[in-house]
Each structure stands twice: as C-alpha cells, then as structure tokens.
C-alpha cells in the first residue's frame, strides 16, 4: 500500500471517535468485507459523536482505492439517522409527541 510501513498502520487513526485504525480497515478488507456500508457497521466508522464528519471521506477513499471502485459508488448507500450530533439524553424526556401530527408514542402505562 503506497509504501506505507507495516506497523505504522496501527498508529494511523481513521475514525477518531471510535479509534478505528488503518490496520483495522485493511484487516477487515482482507477478511472479505466488500461493501462500504458493511465495513462502516462492522468497525463502527462514523458511528461516534462526530457522525462521520472527520472520517467518512478518508475511509471511503481508502476503501474505494483498495476495491478499485469510484467514490461515488462507495458512498451511494450512505444514510444518516438522527441525532446527527450528540445530545444529552435528558432532552428526550420532555418531548411532547403530539406536536404537529407526530404520532403519540404508546408508553405502556402512566407517565
């Protein structure tokens, strides 16, 4: 891989939030992971508090190069779910679920 020294891959951080290294990605690809979304879910790349803002493109670029795919193809099935940024759990306790057509959640008892 482009003259990178073995052993240094351990110290090359791709996803800071979840401490995923270049070595982790290379091993996962060698183990047969051939889909980027699968790789992300397997290693939890971009599943930390920054939600992939730091790592998505680097990881996708490394994966695309290794699999000889285009970045557009690699990112085609990328999806984003809320919360898109870390929020303390306390804020979810006060939400009024009936606001503006939102379906009322069944809480199974009095609340």
């Amino acid at each position: 891989m482009g003259g990178e020294e073995v052993g240094m891959e351990k110290a090359t951080i791709i996803c800071r939030c979840n401490d995923v290294t270049l070595e982790d990605i290379n091993k996962a690809i060698e183990a047969g992971i051939d889909d980027f979304e699968l790789l992300r879910k397997y290693l939890k790349i971009g599943f930390g508090p920054c939600q992939g803002r730091g790592c998505l493109l680097i990881a996708a670029r490394i994966f695309a190069r290794r699999m000889s795919k285009s970045l557009g193809d690699v990112l085609a099935n990328y999806s984003v779910r809320p919360p898109i940024t870390p929020i303390p759990a306390k804020y979810f306790t006060t939400v009024n679920p009936s606001f503006q057509g939102g379906k009322k959640a069944n809480r199974g008892g009095e609340s």
């Binding site: 809320p82 919360p83 898109i84 940024t85 929020i87 606001f99 503006q100 057509g101 939102g102 379906k103």
Partner: peptide
C-alpha cells in the same frame, strides 16, 4: 439534531 415526521 434531526427532522421528524410532519416536518418537525
């Protein structure tokens, strides 16, 4: 942090 049903 997100957009939900009904455009909330």
């Amino acid at each position: 942090y997100g957009v939900f049903r009904g455009g909330v």
